[in-house]
Computed example of a mutant assay.
Amino acid sequence: MLGGAVAVLATGQIAPVDAAKAVDPDVMLFLFGMFVVGEALVASGYLFTVGDRIFRLTKTPDQVVLAVLFGAGFLSALLMNDTLAIIGTPLVLGIAARSRISPKLLLLTLAVAITTGSLASPVGNPQNLLVAVNGGIPSPFVTFGTYLLVPTLISLLVAYLVLRIAYRGEFQPGRSVDRPADPVDSAGEPPAFDRHLALLAKSSIAIIVLLAGVNIAASAMGDGMAVPLPLIALAAALPVLLLSPRRFAILRTIDWPTLVFFTAMFVLMESVWQTGFFQQFVSAGGLTTVPALLATSVLLSQFISNVPFVALFLPMVLQAGGRPDQLMALAAGSTLAGNLTILGAASNVIIVQNAEKQGETLTFYEFARVGVPLTLLQMAVYWVFLGLL
């Protein structure tokens, strides 16, 4: 992405002034703040501990899979999905080793949970954030919840059924799982736990929930969004940045490559938009209906990735009217693309790469065997609900 941005600047395809204007400061500030919070949750050991506590409540493979699906799904709606992919991979591999459940099943469960769960909120993934910030939605939390929360919950249940069919041998009647006395990772070592940093990270989560609640209340009273999304993320990051002695270590280890990716993407996609190539699809019609947006988003996101796809198609959708159902179809389709193949989402790649470091993997076929039928079923769920609303 950076190479493409440098190329269009060097060849004069976009003026430096236009390139600077193309970078959206709201998106960049929001990502920075959320990355700080996510890194604090990981570095403190708190997120791993929460996952292990959830696992302690499970007694059967069905309960383990449902706990991963809905636990990771809920957290991915609150945090950026890539953060959960990083911390969740060693967690589910540890669960698989201790409970004698197939690691492939739990890796797939984690990947599907992260992708599907992130759909339910405007802060669950980067493409949702682009739609929320640049789509002119006055109340993103309310709009995403109204259009996408129920179909997301249904889609998680659909994922459970598809996984159960694909790995039916893992769900034998009467089978129970082992639970260790202490939380351990896949290497058998207890995770480091920093109480002070964990307290700050929990404070950050409380700030996110509180300010999101303020926005929802303000929307219910007809006042729109009271607290902008970038301000929510920066406010949440402040406890860590101001009060943690590990602030500089956290700043060094946040996801800087993704911030570079977004900066370059804004420049490159603005250059592509200025060519006028995609605007012709608006006049041709057809690509901005809900079914077309769902299908196009899922397919094209396999080739140009979902975030650049949304950056390209969002102006087109806005030009065609920018109705809430259109914007939610764009968010839903581009996110569901992550369930179709490994290459559909960066979080999938993170899970596979981290798993391979520990001797486990998912092949392209193993992922698609579950992902293709699951994505088709989930698309149908969102199509029906978006059509009803």
Rank of each mutant, 00 (worst) to 15 (best):
L340T: 08
K59Y: 03
A346D: 05
L91G: 12
G276T: 02
V349E: 06
L161F: 15
G174S: 10
G88T: 02
G4T: 06
A264C: 04
S121P: 05
Y382T: 10
V282F: 01
V68A: 09
L29V: 09
P230G: 06
S118V: 10
G276F: 01
V64I: 14
A7L: 15
A320C: 10
P183V: 03
V158P: 00
F309S: 01
S44Q: 10
T363R: 03
F70H: 13
P25D: 12
I54C: 15
I86W: 09
F55P: 01
Q13P: 00
T375P: 09
I207E: 09
Y147D: 01
R369P: 06
G71I: 01
L107M: 12
Y167I: 10
L340H: 03
A237K: 03
I87K: 06
A355M: 11
L41C: 12
A220P: 03
S139V: 13
L268W: 07
E189A: 14
S283H: 14
V384P: 05
L156K: 00
L130D: 07
T116V: 15
Y46K: 11
Q358V: 11
G371D: 00
G169Q: 13
A5I: 12
N134T: 04
L106T: 04
G117C: 10
L199D: 01
N134C: 07
G88K: 00
L29T: 03
R323E: 15
L389T: 12
N134G: 07
V123H: 04
S139P: 02
Y382A: 08
Y147V: 01
G51L: 03
L9S: 14
A226E: 07
L242I: 15
L376V: 13
A236G: 13
W256F: 09
L199F: 13
G333Y: 05
P291C: 04
R369G: 09
E189I: 08
I208C: 11
A198P: 10
A40Y: 13
G71C: 00
T11V: 13
L47H: 04
H196N: 14
L197E: 01
I304P: 02
S118C: 13
G135N: 04
G359V: 08
F313G: 00
A212Y: 07
L312D: 02
S155G: 09
P373N: 05
F141K: 10
P138L: 05
M28S: 02
I137R: 02
A15C: 09
F35A: 10
R252P: 09
V37R: 02
Q319C: 00
F281D: 06
L69H: 14
S118K: 08
V50Q: 04
I14Q: 02
L374S: 08
P180V: 05
V384M: 13
L376I: 14
